[in-house]
Amino acid sequence: MSTALIVIDLINDIVHPDGKLARAADAVRESGLIARCNALAARARAAGATVAMVRVAFAPDYSDLPRRSPLFGRAAELGALRDGDWGARFHEQLQIGPRDWIVTKPRVSALFDTDLEARLHAAAIRRVAICGVSTETGVQTTARDAHDRDFEVTVIGDLCASADPLRHRAALEMLATVATVADSGQIDFAAWAGDGPSASPHACAQ
């Protein structure tokens, strides 16, 4: 079964210490998340899997900003997540391959109002593995959305991060109802390419 690795929101405003919404920056730094995502993405590419780098960004005039959203509502006030600005760019340490897909989303889910689902279907991809930030928002929402669109979903728990460790753990526990929750060491893209078994379910405690 063809597989895509979906990496969520490793952009400056969210994961760089100087970002305007960087509540998870410390957790990302302390866990070495970006370097470990790079290593997993390299494994995925080597096995022939697709890598999709996803970022959230709004129009320069914020015309598509959901201003009543508790999550995004203050972005315009802070000058955050504006397409074209440094904050909406991927973190400089994130390694993006020449054939990776770049997906820009205007909401929490990577599948909402983007071309990601169409590209997955066009490439005959039915399995997605998801990592990134934040566990309880971008990762969880994308995973649940992918489940409801009939993809087989794996969430890579040790490659997710949140500003709140309790929310991180709770999100992974809840996601076990709609996805396989696995550690990165369990992910075998080569086996998946041969339609091998998925990673065994494993609740990650990080």
Rank of each mutant, 00 (worst) to 15 (best):
L5K: 04
L5W: 06
L10G: 03
D18L: 15
K20N: 08
A22Y: 08
A22Q: 07
A24K: 01
A25Y: 05
R29H: 12
E30L: 12
L33E: 12
L33Y: 09
I34K: 04
N38T: 06
A39R: 15
A44E: 02
T50A: 15
A52H: 13
A57Y: 07
D61I: 13
D61M: 13
Y62T: 11
Y62W: 11
P66L: 02
R67Q: 10
S69T: 05
P70T: 06
F72V: 03
A76M: 10
A76F: 00
L78N: 09
G79S: 09
L81G: 06
G84M: 05
G84K: 09
W86E: 03
W86I: 02
A88Y: 00
Q95G: 03
G97Q: 05
G97N: 03
G97S: 08
R99Q: 15
D100S: 12
W101H: 07
W101T: 06
F112Q: 13
F112L: 14
F112V: 08
L116H: 10
L116A: 09
A118K: 09
L120T: 00
A122P: 01
A122N: 08
A123Y: 02
A124C: 02
I130K: 11
S134N: 12
T135E: 01
T135P: 03
E136H: 13
T137S: 08
T137P: 00
G138Q: 01
V139Y: 02
Q140N: 07
A143T: 08
A143W: 02
H147I: 00
R149C: 07
D150K: 01
F151H: 12
E152A: 11
T154M: 13
V155Q: 09
V155L: 12
I156D: 03
L159R: 07
C160Y: 02
S162I: 05
D164R: 07
P165E: 09
L166M: 14
R167C: 04
A170W: 05
T177W: 11
A179H: 05
S184P: 03
S184R: 13
S184M: 08
I187A: 06
F189D: 01
A190F: 05
A190H: 12
D195Y: 01
G196Q: 07
S198P: 14
A199L: 05
H202F: 10
H202S: 14
